[in-house]
Amino acid sequence: MAGIFDKVKDTLNSYRTPGYFKKLDHKWTMVVDLDMCNGCGACVAGCYAENNLPVVGKEDCGKSRAFSWLRIERYVDGEYPDVKVKFIPVMCQHCMKAPCEIGCPVYATYHNQDGLNVQVYNRCVGTFTCATYCTYDVRRFNWFSYKWPKPLDQQLNPDVTVREMGVMEKCTFCIQRITAAKDKAKDEGRGVKDGEVLPACCQSCPTNALVFGDLQDPESRVAKMVNNPRKYRLLEELNTDPSVIYLKRVMNDGKSEE
C-alpha cells in the first residue's frame, strides 16, 4: 500500500517538475565556433542532402520560403574601408524552454528524453503557431506538395520522410543519425560514443566549426568546449535555454564585451 502511495507521489512530483525529466538520456548539444566558421555554406548543402529538403525555385525564394533548416546569417558593420563581416550559422536551437512547444495544440512538437525539440510531421495540422512563437525563425513550412523531377527523387534519403503539404518542419539535429547510432550501440551492447553521432552539417563542415555531442558525457568534446570563456548563446536574454552554444568570434570590431 505504502509502495503504491510512494509511486503515486513520485509520479505526481515528476509531473510537477519543470521540464519533466529528472535526467535526460542524452543532452545533445552543438557547439559552433564562430571564429572558425568561414561562411562557405557546406553545412547548408549537407542539410539539403540529408534531410530531403525540397528546392522551391526563384519565385518562392523571393517570398522567403526557402527550406534550408540551417542558414548562414551574415551581418555587415561599417562603411568602406572599415567593413566587418560576420557569419553565424543558425539552425533550430533545440531550446530546453522552447516557446514553440507550448504553442502547438496537437503535440506535434515537444521535448524528448534526449533533450531534443522534436517535430512530428505526421501529427502536424499546420496552425503555424510554433513558427510564429519561434524566436530564431528556424521553422519551415511545406507551402505546397513539392515534387522532385525524376530521377532526382532517387537521391531522397529513405531514413527521413518526405513531408506532406501543410506540415511544419525544422532542423532535427539529424535525429535519424542519432537513432542509427543508438541502434548500432544497442546491437553492440554499449552506449553511444562521443563523435559517433554527427549531424550532416557538422560532418561536412570544412573548418570543423560545428561540433556535436552529448553534454551529459563529461568526456565528450562538447562538454569540454562549453567551458570555453568565449561561450554564449543566441538571444540568451529570452530565457529559451538553447542547446546550441556559440563561441564568440575573435575580431576587432570595437564591440566586444567583457
Binding site: 564562430l34 526563384k58 525564394c61 523571393g62 522567403s64 526557402a66 542558414r71 546569417e73 551574415r74 551581418y75 555587415v76 558593420d77 560576420k86 557569419f87 553565424i88 568565449r230 554564449y232 543566441l234 538571444l235 556559440y246 564568440k248 568570434r249 575573435v250 575580431m251 576587432n252 570590431d253 564591440k255 566586444s256 564585451e257 567583457e258
Partner: peptide, 23 residues
C-alpha cells in the same frame, strides 16, 4: 531574389565578438 532581410545587427548581440587581445 536575396535571402537576407537586414544585415544590420542593431546592437542585438547576435554575433558576439572578443577582441584578439582579450582572446
Amino acid at each position: 531574389v536575396k535571402m537576407e532581410g537586414s544585415t544590420k545587427e542593431l546592437g542585438r548581440g547576435i554575433v558576439k565578438t572578443v577582441s584578439p587581445e582579450e582572446f
